[in-house]
């Protein structure tokens, strides 16, 4: 290597630094290849590489990307869920038994941790409702409601676990959010997007609240009146079987519950009779996954705590 004098050395060092920085820049660009178009547009505009109007039109075209329920953040899902829950509680009042509610909350919490979406913005919470109707409903984000009538279809803990796991299945697949009409999602997310500030002006707030209210109606109408599609119910049962197995419960608990339910459901009833496929067809579908029915084993302490908590529900 040539021996350099001091000025040459600094010039070399300077060149190396430029090369180094260049390499660094290229590498950074390479590793963060997923940088937002918007950020790049911003840089482009501020550095004078593109004009502001060009930047705007690029921005607009990226905004035209189709929106779906998946674009709701967990935080928004949480607020939707709270209001859906309030509507559900308007239909059936809470069953104010600490012992029974504590029991389904511990059980439900354990099951939710074995689901594919154990963490939601506000977490999973369970509540028994004071009604003889056979019903269980899940609001987006993890607020889960189950009637006394439904719990009476359960003769052991594995069956209660199956009911809760089925509802957790609806939550993890975001079935509630999918009940919101597509046009509503598009308009909601566009308004939200453009007016994304934390505090809205009067007009935006009114517009968003209207969209919010319609979205809540879409979900509650599906939950309470129309029911989900057969496919969604099948998915929820499938998820329930997976969750039960992961925790160590017998998925035959689901079948046991459905058999009793089929005897209790009244034709033309406004509960599961109206919103779910028949228990017999659900059993047939479940058997395709778990095979022939086997008897659920009920360990002594497990059965004793089930009776203590829900024996008189």
């Amino acid at each position: 290597m040539t021996i350099l004098n001091r000025p040459q050395l600094w010039s070399f060092a300077g060149k190396s630094a430029v090369i180094g920085l260049g390499v660094m820049f290229l590498f950074v660009v390479f590793v963060s290849g997923c940088a937002t178009t918007e950020a790049i547009i911003d840089i482009g505009v501020s550095s004078g590489l593109i004009t502001e109007s060009q930047g705007e039109s690029i921005s607009k075209s990226t905004k035209a990307v189709a929106r779906s329920f998946e674009d709701f953040t967990p935080e928004q899902e949480y607020y939707v869920g709270r209001s859906v829950g309030a509507v559900i509680l308007n239909k059936y009042k809470p069953y104010n038994s600490k012992k029974a509610n504590d029991y389904i909350n511990i059980l439900g919490q354990i099951l939710s941790k074995a689901s594919d979406m154990p963490e939601t913005f506000g977490g999973y919470h369970f509540l028994i409702q004071d009604s003889d109707e056979v019903n269980a409903l899940a609001a987006p984000g993890g607020l889960i409601f189950v009637t006394r009538g439904m719990l009476r279809c359960c003769q052991h803990e594995d069956a209660v676990a199956a009911v809760l796991a089925h509802e957790i299945g609806h939550v993890q697949a975001k079935h509630g959010l999918q009940a919101i009409k597509k046009s509503r999602i598009t308009s909601a997310l566009t308004t939200i997007g453009i007016e994304g500030a934390k505090t809205f002006g009067e007009e935006e707030l009114a517009e968003l609240t209207e969209t919010f209210e319609s979205s809540i109606s879409d979900i509650t109408a599906t939950l309470v009146n129309n029911g989900y599609s057969r496919n969604f119910e099948r998915d929820a049962d499938k998820a329930a079987v997976t969750i039960l197995k992961r925790v160590g419960y017998d998925p035959n608990g689901l079948e046991d519950m459905l058999k009793i339910m089929s005897k209790k459901l009244k034709p033309g009833g406004l509960d599961f009779a109206k919103t779910h496929p028949s228990p017999a067809s659900r059993i047939a579908d479940i058997q395709k996954i778990i095979g022939k029915t086997t008897r659920v084993i009920k360990p002594k302490t497990r059965q004793a705590r089930f009776i203590a908590a829900l024996g008189n529900v």
Binding site: F72, T73, E75, Q76, Y79, V80, R82, S83, A188, L189, T191, I192, G196, A197, K198, T199, F200, L205, A206, L208, T209, F212, E213, S215, I216
Partner: peptide, 12 residues
């Protein structure tokens, strides 16, 4: 806090 948030819930 964008979109459906505390403020929208209060209004609702």
């Amino acid at each position: 806090g964008k979109g459906f948030n505390q403020q929208v819930e209060s209004e609702f």
